[in-house]
């Protein structure tokens, strides 16, 4: 009984932890200048609202159908927002266009068909698995691009990097949870609990990383170059002297 209660508390903490990124976003809102970060801010608001709804449906109204419908809606909206965010932080146009014209419509259509077939009675894990695989691949590609880039700016000082790390940990850590969730009915209560613990740990880690991402001190390449040139100021001023002498 006590173990069950602890688990319930952990799950509620997990739900509440979805507010962490929103809190950080609100406190460090001066850093949200770009369109992509504004989209991320919308995501944090959405996650907070979703958690609240889930909490209400599960703990207060105990409405299973509404809960399933909210999950479906959450999946599509989350997919769209994170897709928009991740596809904007990567540079490869071909990758962006392919995702935008093929994968995103496919995902939405698949979900609509799944909803028409199953309604609100059940919620399969395949759409979520597609989402996870897609995002894992996009994030790996984002890391690959960052590794290739000739920027002097350390990747660990970037907000986008830590957001991607948070999402990456979440998608990889929960992959097997989502994959095996359908078999959890066959499993013993102990395995079910273990599944929930893993899910909670990974989700809380993700939310902490998404929130802490805003603490990174992002600098542009231009600022870094200015710093570098200031260190070799003599060279800079003298070269203009020589150039001017020729004119």
């Amino acid at each position: 009984m006590r173990k069950y209660l602890t688990l319930e508390i952990l799950l509620n903490i997990t739900l509440i932890s979805e507010i962490i990124p929103l809190i950080f976003c609100l406190f460090i809102s001066y850093k949200i200048k770009t369109k992509v970060l504004k989209v991320f801010f919308i995501y944090t608001v959405f996650q907070a609202l979703f958690s609240l709804l889930c909490f209400l449906f599960v703990n207060v109204s105990k409405s299973y159908n509404n809960y399933i419908f909210t999950l479906r809606l959450h999946l599509i909206v989350e997919f769209l927002i994170i897709s928009y965010y991740l596809l904007n932080v990567i540079d490869n146009q071909l990758f962006k266009k392919t995702s935008f014209y093929f994968l995103i419509p496919f995902f939405i259509i698949y979900n609509i068909i799944d909803f028409l077939i199953n309604g609100n009675t059940s919620f399969g894990n395949i759409p979520t698995l597609i989402e996870f695989i897609f995002f894992i691949l996009v994030i790996i590609y984002f890391f690959y691009e960052k590794m290739k880039s000739s920027s002097l700016f350390p990747i660990y000082n970037s907000i986008h990097f830590w957001i991607s790390v948070g999402l990456f940990v979440y998608f990889t850590g929960n992959f097997f949870y989502i994959l095996l969730v359908e078999y959890s009915t066959l499993a013993s209560p102990e395995v079910k609990n273990q599944l929930k613990v893993i899910y909670s740990a990974v989700t809380i880690t993700k939310n902490l990383l998404l929130g802490l991402a805003f603490l990174s001190s992002e600098k542009t390449d231009q600022e870094l170059n200015e710093n570098f040139l200031n260190n070799s100021k003599d060279y800079d001023s003298d070269s203009s002297f020589y150039q001017n002498n020729l004119q």
């Binding site: 790996i140 940990v169 097997f176 095996l180 066959l186 499993a187 102990e190 273990q194």
Partner: peptide, 26 residues
């Protein structure tokens, strides 16, 4: 149930190790 539990732990641990490995490597 023990098989699922083992598979889940190995899978999750493997995925997380892979993820951390990729991040550290990058």
């Amino acid at each position: 149930s023990s098989g699922i539990s083992k598979l889940m732990f190995i899978g999750t641990f493997g995925m997380l190790t892979l993820a951390v490995g990729i991040i550290v490597f990058v």
